[in-house]
Design a protein around this nucleic acid. Structure first.
Lengths: 276, 276
DNA sequence: GGCAAGGCCTGATCTAAATCAAAACCATAA
DNA sequence: TTATGGTTTTGATTTAGATCAGGCCTTGCC
C-alpha cells in the first residue's frame, strides 16, 4: 500500500534470532491444541506459514480481520487502538508464544512489530476446517482466547485506578514474570518496546514513565544498564508497589469447569462499599 | 456470610417490574442459542432458574465462579474489580438481555445488583451438557463471549486516553444506544447506577461526573429531570464529543468468518505513528 | 569521522482533575 | 409533618501528572 518505509527506522536494537526454531513448549496456542491430542496441532502445523516483520512493520489489516490465527514466534507485537485525533491506546503486547489474533477478526485495532519478529500464521480457512474436524480443539482455542480476557480486566483496573508509580511497577512486575530471566543480581528483562509504547499502554506520558523508572532506580528497586534493559533487583519491593496481586494466569480456563456451586441464591454477599 | 444488610438501603428508586416475562427477543444469549435452531435454547430453558436480587445484593461468589450462565432478565448488574485498599474499577454494567457470566468462571471480579433485578441462571452442569449435546450452540456462546471483548478494548481506550468530558459523553452515548427510548424532546435514559458507579467505571470521581453532567446540561446537550433520568436532547452533539465512533456491536462474531484475506504478508501497512 | 534523527532523561511550568468541604436534594420512616 | 441518611451538586483548594523545553546518548548514514 504505502511504499514509504524510508522514514521508518529501527527504533529498537536487539534482534530476535529470526531463524531459530519456534519454542513450542511455551506456545499457548500449541498447548491448547495439544490438550486434545497431537492430531489437531499437526493439522494446523501443515497449514501454517511463518512471516518475518521488521521493526515498525504493521500487520496488514486484512490479516487481522480475516479471522485466522496469528501467534508470535519470536519478537514482540504491539496491539493498539487508534483514535481519530492521533491518540492511541496500546491494548497489549504480545510476546513469543502468545496469540495476536485467535480465530476471530480483530475489531478496531491495528498491530505492528516492536522489534524484528517472526509470526506464525494460520489462514482463516484452516481454522474453519479445524472447527469441523477437531471441534474439541477449536473449543479449547476459544477458551484460551477467553482466558486472555482476565488480563484485560486487570488492565482496566490499572488504567482506571493506578497512580503512575503503581502503573509502572505493575508493568515491570508483569513483564518480569513473563520474559524475565533469573540471574545473579536480579531478574533481567529486555524491553522490546519504547517508553512511548509503555506510556500508551499505561495511560500515561513517556516522560512520566521515564521519570518513574528513574525513581525506581534511585530507590534501588531496579537497575537500568541501558534504556532497553531492566534488572529488577528487588522483585518483592516492586510487587509491594502494586495494589493488587495479578490474577494467576490459568491459560486454560474451562467452560463448565470451576467451582461446585449448584443453584440460585439467597442473594446476600459482599456488596463491598467503594472506598471505605 | 455477613448478615448485616441493615446498612444496605435502596439507593435507587425505580423498580424493574420483576414479574414481567423475559424480553427474549433482546436477549443476546438466547439469540446465540437460537442461531443453531430452537432445540438448544429449549434444552437450557428447562434447566434454567430465575432469581431476584434487591438493590445492592451481591451475586454470590460461587455463582460467579461456577462456570454456569448468568444473564440479566430485568434490572442492572454492576461488575467490578476490587483492590486491596478499597479502590475499585467497575468493569462493566449488564443490562437486560446481556450476560454477566457466560460459561466461564469470572476471575477476580465481584458483581451486585444496581437496582432490583431478575437474573436467569443456568447451572454449570447444564452448560457442560450443552457442550456435549449441542457443540455448535456452545461454540456460538463462546463466540458471543468473545465479541464482548471488543467492548473491553474500547473501554481501555476510554480509561487511558479520554478526558472527563469525553468519558461522560461516551458513557451517555453508549447507554442511550442501549437502553434509550426515543421520545419527543430527545432520547430518554434511565440510569440504574449511581454517580459513584459511573465514576468508577470511567476512572474518575463522582464529583467530576456530576460536574460534567451539569456542564452538558448548561450547554443544552442533555436535560436532567431527576438525578437518575437523563434526556439526551442533542445526540449528534454528544457523539461529537466522543473522539471515536464505537465499534459497531456485532454480537455474533464468527470464528473463521470475516474478510477474504488469504496468506502471508509483504509486511507493510499502517504503522501509524502515535500522536503525529 | 561528522552529521542527522530518534529515543531517552530531566527540569520548569501549567492545568485538569482530585480532594476537601458544605449545602441542596430526595426518599423513606417515624 | 418532620427527622434522617444517603446521594448529588457546587464551590474552593491542592496536586499529580501533562505539557513544554533543553540536552544527552545512541544509531545509522554520508
Amino acid at each position: 500500500m504505502n511504499g514509504d518505509n524510508m522514514n521508518r527506522r529501527p527504533r529498537r536494537r536487539f534482534s530476535a534470532a529470526p531463524e531459530a526454531p519456534c519454542p513450542a513448549r511455551h506456545c499457548q496456542v500449541c498447548a491448547a491444541l495439544e490438550s486434545e491430542g497431537l492430531a489437531a496441532r499437526e493439522f494446523l502445523k501443515s497449514r501454517m506459514t511463518q512471516a518475518v516483520f521488521e521493526t515498525g512493520d504493521g500487520l496488514p489489516e486484512q490479516m487481522l480481520l480475516a479471522g485466522g490465527i496469528i501467534a508470535v514466534s519470536h519478537g514482540a507485537v504491539v496491539i493498539q487502538r487508534l483514535m481519530d485525533d492521533g491518540r492511541r491506546q496500546v491494548v497489549g503486547f504480545r510476546l513469543p508464544g502468545e496469540p495476536v489474533v485467535l480465530g476471530r477478526p480483530a475489531r478496531g485495532v491495528t498491530a505492528f512489530a516492536a522489534v524484528p519478529s517472526t509470526l506464525c500464521i494460520v489462514p482463516a480457512d484452516a481454522v474453519t476446517a479445524l472447527k469441523q474436524n477437531f471441534p474439541g480443539a477449536a473449543m479449547r482455542l476459544c477458551e484460551l482466547a477467553l482466558s486472555l480476557e482476565d488480563e484485560r480486566t486487570e488492565h482496566l483496573a490499572v488504567l482506571g485506578q493506578f497512580t503512575v508509580a503503581e502503573k509502572v511497577a505493575y508493568f515491570l512486575y508483569r513483564l518480569a514474570g513473563k520474559i524475565g530471566s533469573r540471574a545473579p543480581g536480579g531478574v533481567h528483562v529486555d524491553l522490546p518496546m519504547t517508553r512511548e509504547d509503555i506510556a500508551d499502554y499505561l495511560g500515561a506520558t513517556s516522560e512520566s514513565v521515564s521519570r518513574q523508572l528513574s525513581r525506581f532506580k534511585r530507590d534501588g528497586l531496579i537497575a537500568l544498564p541501558s534504556p532497553d534493559r531492566v534488572i529488577v533487583k528487588d522483585l518483592p519491593a516492586l510487587a509491594a508497589e502494586v495494589p493488587f496481586q495479578p490474577v494467576i494466569e490459568d491459560a486454560g480456563g474451562s467452560i463448565g469447569g470451576g467451582g461446585s456451586f449448584r443453584f440460585p441464591p439467597g442473594g446476600d454477599e459482599a456488596r463491598v462499599a467503594a472506598r471505605p
